Amino acid sequence: MRYFLYTFIAVALIVVSCKDKTKKEPQAVTPPGEDSVTETLDTLLSAEAIQSFSTSGFSGYAKKKAAGFDWSKFRMVSSWQEDSMLVAAFTPDKDYFASYGPFLKYSPDSSLFIDLDSYNIDITKDSKGRLIGHEIGPDCEVSLVDVDDKTKTRLVFLGPGGSIEDATWLDNNTLVLMGVQENEKGAKTATLWRFHIPTKTYYLYEIPDTTVAGPLMGYWRTERLKNVEIK
């Protein structure tokens, strides 16, 4: 009888131990709306995201300029939550919307917009109504503006080696910045910054082939801001 009691206790302990191990197993983190793919640490863009990106002007430019460019080649290399973001009051001057309005990227419900240019380029209208732009400096900053709260939040700040070429919205809560930045080895990489607003979570995607990045730089100047005479 004592033998069966010991056997029962041993089996029970094994079952409890297995359950505890199952609970402690780490779960893969998948961006909202993304399909997780098990390839070491890589995560591919979903078919829906690729379809959305493919309709952008930047997509056609990238495929024309960089032979190896393909949205399906992007891999998620890291993700993080930003607990403290740089937020300031949004107090534009009276000419802000006349100068930058055509280039702002509004969310589907128009409650937010992405400001790609005001930090980087001083755009004004001359006496003939032409838009004239003067580059302010080598750095690049992109902000998210809340229309109702009148606040501006810094999304990305890059030094001279990087650029944000374009941006798009996947839904009212998720935006994507498209551009180039330098990796840890100093090589330029084609990069996507995907930002989920409610959770303040970034998902960083890159194309491993560093030869793709160089030809992508300059879209903002020659295409996105083609109606601005930049001096």
Rank of each mutant, 00 (worst) to 15 (best):
D166G: 03
W169T: 06
E135W: 10
E165V: 09
R130N: 15
P26T: 09
E182K: 12
T189C: 10
T22Y: 14
K128R: 15
S110C: 06
V180N: 04
K105E: 05
T191Q: 08
R130I: 13
L44C: 02
T55S: 11
M76E: 00
C140S: 12
T40Y: 00
G129F: 10
D146P: 01
D95C: 07
D109F: 05
S107N: 06
W80I: 05
Y202E: 02
I121Y: 04
F58C: 02
F69Y: 11
S59R: 02
F97S: 06
D20W: 11
N172M: 10
V11F: 13
L225T: 05
D171H: 08
H196V: 13
L112D: 01
E135R: 15
T191Y: 07
I123D: 00
G161L: 10
Q81F: 07
T124A: 13
D115R: 00
D83A: 15
G159K: 11
W193I: 14
R130K: 15
V228Q: 03
T201F: 06
D70G: 05
G179N: 05
T153F: 05
D95H: 13
V180I: 15
M85A: 14
S84Y: 11
R130D: 15
N120F: 05
V142S: 02
S107Q: 04
G186F: 10
Y202A: 02
A67R: 11
R75K: 15
Y119W: 10
K226E: 12
Y202P: 01
S110Q: 14
R75I: 00
A28P: 04
Q51A: 13
A190S: 14
E184F: 10
K125W: 04
V87Q: 09
A190I: 03
K19D: 08
E182R: 11
D70I: 04
V29D: 01
K152R: 14
S72L: 08
P198R: 09
T201S: 13
L155C: 04
I14M: 13
V147N: 06
F4T: 07
T124Y: 11
S110D: 09
L131G: 03
V176G: 01
R2W: 11
G218I: 02
